[in-house]
Simulated scan of single mutants.
Amino acid sequence: MLTYPKIDPVAIQIGPLAVHWYGLTYLAAFGLFMLLANARLKHQPYASIQGPGAWSRRDIEDMLFYGVVGVIAGGRLGYCLFYKPGYYATHPLEILFVWQGGMSFHGGMLGVIVSQWFYARSRGKPFWQVMDFVAPCVPPGLAAGRVGNFINGELWGRAADPALPWAMVFPQSGSMVARHPSQVYQFLLEGLLLFVLLWLYARHERKEAQVSAVFLIGYGAFRFIAEFFREPDAHLMWLQQQTGLSMGQWLCVPMVLAGIVLWLWAQRRGLPARTPHPG
C-alpha cells in the first residue's frame, strides 16, 4: 500500500505570482495538440486536399484558439449544470469564478463541438472533416489533465484492498483508507490507450464522421469503466446509491450511443472524408 506523496500544487512562486502545476498541464495539453495536429496534416484526406479547402498550420492555430474558449466555457457550464445545478441556480455569479475549480469533461466536449462548428462555418470547411481532424489529437491532453488531478490529490478512487500493490492512501480524503489511484487509471485508459487506438484508426482514410464516432465510443467506454474505481462526488453519492451508476457513467451512456449511431450513419452515408462540400 502506498501513501500519496504530498506535492505542492504551486510549481513556481515569484512574489505574489504563483504558477500552479494544474495550469501547466493545460499548457502541456495545448502544446501536445499543436504537435499532433501538425503531424495530422500529413494524414489523409488532409494531405491531399488542395485549393481553398487546403489545410495548413494556420488552421491548427485557429482551431486551438476556438477550442480553448470552448473547453473552458463548456467545461465550466457543464460542471455547474451536471454536478451542482441547485447551488449555481442560487449563486449564478459564481459560475464565472473558474479559479475556484470545477470543470466537466462532458461539458468541455460540448463546448469544443460548438466552437469547432463556428470555426468550420467561418472557414467554409465541412464540420465532420474538422471534427475528424481534431479527435485523435485530444486524448494526450486528457492524459495531461489527469496528471494535474493526481498532483492536486483530487478525484481519488474508491476504497481498495490494502493488499493491492498500487493501492494508495489519500489523506485529502479525510481518511487513511487505501484507495484506487483512479487518476492514474484514467490517464492510462482515456489518455494513452485511447490515443493509441484512435491514432492508428485515423491514420487510414475513413468515411467522414467515423473518426469522431470512434472517439465518442472509446472515451465513453473507457470513462464508464474508470468510474467503477473513482469515488463519486459526495453530493452525488445518492445517484450512485439509487441507480448503481455514477453521474459520470450516466453521462457516458448517451455518449457511447451517439458514437454508435454516428458511425453507422457515416457508414451508410458513405461520404469519403476528402469530399469537398459546404460546411
Rank of each mutant, 00 (worst) to 15 (best):
P85Q: 04
F118L: 15
G157I: 02
G218T: 03
R269D: 14
F82L: 10
M247R: 03
V130M: 02
L17F: 12
L142A: 13
I60L: 02
L81D: 02
G279V: 05
L41R: 13
G78M: 05
V98K: 08
I151C: 11
L239Q: 12
M176A: 12
F195W: 14
R58Q: 15
S56A: 14
G67E: 01
L93H: 08
F97N: 14
G157A: 05
G108I: 03
G145I: 08
P171M: 07
R269I: 07
A213V: 01
V98M: 13
Y46R: 14
F127W: 11
K207P: 06
H20W: 06
L142P: 03
G191K: 00
A159I: 04
F215M: 12
G279W: 04
Q183V: 13
H204N: 14
L197W: 15
F30I: 13
C137I: 11
W263E: 12
I7G: 08
A273F: 09
E205M: 15
A18Q: 14
H204P: 05
T3Q: 07
F30A: 14
P165F: 09
W199I: 10
E94N: 14
A178E: 09
V196C: 15
R223F: 04
R274W: 13
A273R: 07
V147I: 15
H204F: 11
I60R: 02
Y119F: 00
P140Y: 10
Y4R: 01
G220I: 06
P16E: 01
G270L: 05
L193F: 13
E227H: 02
P136A: 06
L164E: 13
Q242W: 06
T243Y: 10
P92T: 02
L93R: 10
Q240Y: 12
R58F: 12
F215P: 04
F228N: 01
A159C: 03
